[in-house]
Amino acid sequence: MSIEVRNLNYIYNEGTVFEKQGLRNINLTIEDGEFIGIIGHTGSGKSTLIQHFNGLNKPSSGTVLYNGDDIYKKGFSKKQLRSKVGLVFQYPEYQLFETTVLNDVKFGPKNIGLSEEDIDNNARDALEMAGIPKEMYNVSPLELSGGEKRRVAIAGVLAMKPKFLILDEPTAGLDPGGKNEILSLIDNLHKKDGVTIVLVSHSMEDVAKYATRLVVMNDGEIFISGTPGEVFKKYRELEKIGLSAPQTVYFLKELKNLGYDVNTDIITPDEAVREIVKKIHVKRI
C-alpha cells in the first residue's frame, strides 16, 4: 500500500487577483509502515500538502495515487479513501459536536456505511486505543479536559480503521502530560497496529524521536528529505530557512569541537547519554 504524490502543483484562488502558488512540483511516496515527519515553518505548505493525501484539496496540476489509483479520477470513491487515509486536523477538538463522546466517535464509521454492530465495535476500540476510560463514553465531549477532547477527536478518525494516519500538529497547545499521551498513542499505532503515520510537527525533538523519514518543506517545495540523521546533519541549511536541528545535535557537535571523539549522527538525548557514557572517560562517582 502507498500514497504517491506526482508533480503536484497547487495554486490558491486560481484565476483571481489573489492567486498565489501554494505548492510547487511535489513528488513524494509514502510507503506502508513508514513514520514520516513533515517539518517547515508556518506557511511553508505543510497543511496544504497533507490535505491532498485524502483528496480534500484538488491540485492545479499533477495528481495523487492511492495504491496506484488516481484519486481524482471520476468514479473513485473519496469516502472510502478518507476511511483508509485518516486525517486529524490541527486543534481537532473543535470538530466535536455530538451529545456524547461515544456518539461523536461513531460519526465517521456511520458515514462510511458500516453495520450497526461494526460502528459500535469500531468506536469502542478506538476510544480504548486513545485511552479514554469507559465512564466517559456517555458524557458530553464539552465536559472533558483539553487533552481528553483531543484524544476523543483522534479516536473519531481511528474509528474508521485507517491504514494511513495523518496528523497536523496533534500536540499543539497541550501541557507536557497531554503531549506525551498523544505521542505515545501515535507511537503505539505505528508499532503495534502497523498504521502508517504522517506527523506534521514544529518540534524537532519529537520528529527526531519517532520518525523514520523526514520531509522538510519550504515555500511550497520539498527542501530536503531523508532519514532524521541525514536531514539534521544539514543543520546549516535548515537554519537558512528558519528551522533548526534538535538541541542534542548541537550539543554533540560542540563536544566534538572540544576534542571528544563522539558520534555526531546522534539526534536524541537518550542516545546522546549512552554515547557519552561509552566514549567520554572522566572520573565518575
Binding site: 550539543f251 538525548p269 557519552i276 565518575r284 562517582i285
Partner: peptide
C-alpha cells in the same frame, strides 16, 4: 532537555 541530559549523566556518576 539539557537539564534532562545532565540529570541522566549525574546518575551515571
Amino acid at each position: 532537555q539539557a537539564v534532562y541530559i545532565a540529570d541522566r549523566l549525574r546518575k551515571e556518576g
